[in-house]
Write a protein that binds this DNA or RNA. Sequence first.
DNA 1: AAATCGGGGGT
DNA 2: ACCCCAGATTT
Length: 360
Amino acid sequence: MSQQPSPFSPTKDFAKRLLAWSDINGRKDLPWQSDKTPYRVWVSEIMLQQTQVAAVIGYYQRFMEHFPDIHSLAHAEEQQVLAQWAGLGYYARARNLHKAAKHVVFDLDGAFPSDVEKIMELSGIGRSTAGAISSIAFKRSAPILDGNVKRVLTRLHDIEGWPGGREIEKQLWQLADNYTPTERCEDYTQAIMDLGATLCTRSKPQCTQCPFQTDCQAYANDTITLRPTSKPKKKNPVKECWILDITCNNETLFEKRPASGIWGGLHSLPELSREYTYDEILEEVERRFDLKGLSIDEARPFKHIFSHYTLLAHPVRIQVSRQENSIREERLEWLTHEARAQKGLPAPISKYFEEKITKP
DNA sequence: AAATCGGGGGT
DNA sequence: ACCCCAGATTT
């Protein structure tokens, strides 16, 4: 755990300078930026959660015409709410909005809660959205930590580590809280989102326009493109299977694989789900190939790493007695080791045979 | 094709 | 308390 020596080295007057910047460059004419009632702010924050400003504007205006206040929303049928939401996507947001409206109107006497803790109890509102509503609608000093703010803060402090992780997120909330002013906190909330949305963007940030260029640790360290640290790719799953090494005399049964998928179109050993028991394997061999197994035993498993998963193949050797009337299919082929060497086979299968020959 | 996003839900 | 997902867009 690399505890940073000082998790917080305050940039002096951050809020003041940010507000000075946003007074000139910030957006102040969006539909939800006038008449900032809790209801109007809330609806805008929910709509903006996973959707860009430009896409939200039209929906917001129509939504407000249909449901001008929280009472009209609470008394509406869910279908009417969803109808107004149609096209915005993420419809769970609309259901949560409706559910929360009913809760406020019928359980809280229509009084929208003002502190973060209470706001967070409403469906569809987490800590960041609650902070936004509390600060913008109630002018309470409450931090937010949405994607924009995470980006600004991880760059300003050049914080390494995925912001979704526990420790980093905790550190970011601490920073967000420290920077949040008591004066003009509603403008500050809007301003830091504007900074992230217009200058401190994910790609091609406009650092030359940024009022914090000389404060920015990532800029100084030339790590802007590395911040925020991207989510660690979850390590690939391991998939296991049986690989059937079916032999009769000196020949092995190969099966041409489907054209698409892994090893598409190549000849390979038949593959079965690892779930099968020996008995089930033999049943399947008889069903699919019309071959009776005489003996069955396992060889050493081999591993093959694909880009998206690791295959752990368990070869199972099956001796069969060749029948006259064995199923004949285009995709099935009996090959000797010599013939096999000429054939296009998946590398792991070829390798398996090299080992089998050199170390029987 | 892969990364992103804030909250919900499952473990 | 922690991890992961659904659902849609963006790069």
